[in-house]
């Protein structure tokens, strides 16, 4: 039985770090032997969560920090993306497909809908101090190992 593992990284709220966050999580989750599809699903969901921070969390300041945590619990991958920004006024509304507070910027309003569709479970909470915390869950099937052992 593999020991549970975790990692944590903090970076400035810059769009260039979206790609970094995706690759970082993908590299961490390799220990669970995910399929290529599972890795790509996770990368997409992480990108949505980090983009929300970059676009919405720190509108009036020159930027803040984004904290990214990943942990494994057995075959469950748990990813937490949090910021100390302005927070989401109405979380329920924000999770509705096509809802966006910035329609003039060609935004689809599909961020949370995509996270929900690509992960097993998505939780959105107010962060302890201020800002938002998004928790993404995905159980990795370990298909490759099953094939190896077959």
């Amino acid at each position: 039985m593999q020991k549970n593992n975790y990692m944590e990284v903090t970076f400035p709220s810059l769009s260039v770090n979206e790609g970094f966050a995706r690759v970082c999580v993908a590299a961490f989750c390799l220990q669970l032997n995910p399929s290529v599809d599972e890795i790509n699903d996770i990368k997409t969901a992480v990108s949505e969560a980090v983009t929300n921070c970059v676009v919405h969390a720190y509108p009036k300041t020159s930027g803040g920090l984004i904290n990214l945590k990943c942990e494994t619990q057995g075959q469950m991958l748990i990813i937490t993306v949090s910021d100390n920004g302005v927070g989401i006024k109405d979380i329920e509304k924000a999770r509705e497909p096509f809802y966006t507070t910035k329609p003039s910027e060609e935004r689809s309003g599909m961020g949370f809908a995509v996270m929900e569709s690509f992960m097993d479970k998505v939780e959105v909470e107010k962060n302890d101090n201020k800002g938002t915390k998004v928790i993404l869950y995905k159980r990795i099937s370990r298909l490759q190992e099953q094939v190896k052992n077959a």
């Binding site: 790509n40 983009t51 060609e106 935004r107 689809s108 599909m110 995509v114």
Partner: peptide, 30 residues
């Protein structure tokens, strides 16, 4: 990611005025 949707729909709206259709091919699974 979904940012791409915003970009594509924005271009669609511009081309719609010129009556030029846009087609998509070879998307990834995601």
């Amino acid at each position: 990611d979904s940012t791409g949707i915003g970009v594509l729909i924005g271009r669609y709206k511009k081309m719609k005025d010129r009556q030029i259709p846009i087609y998509i091919c070879n998307p990834s699974k995601q």
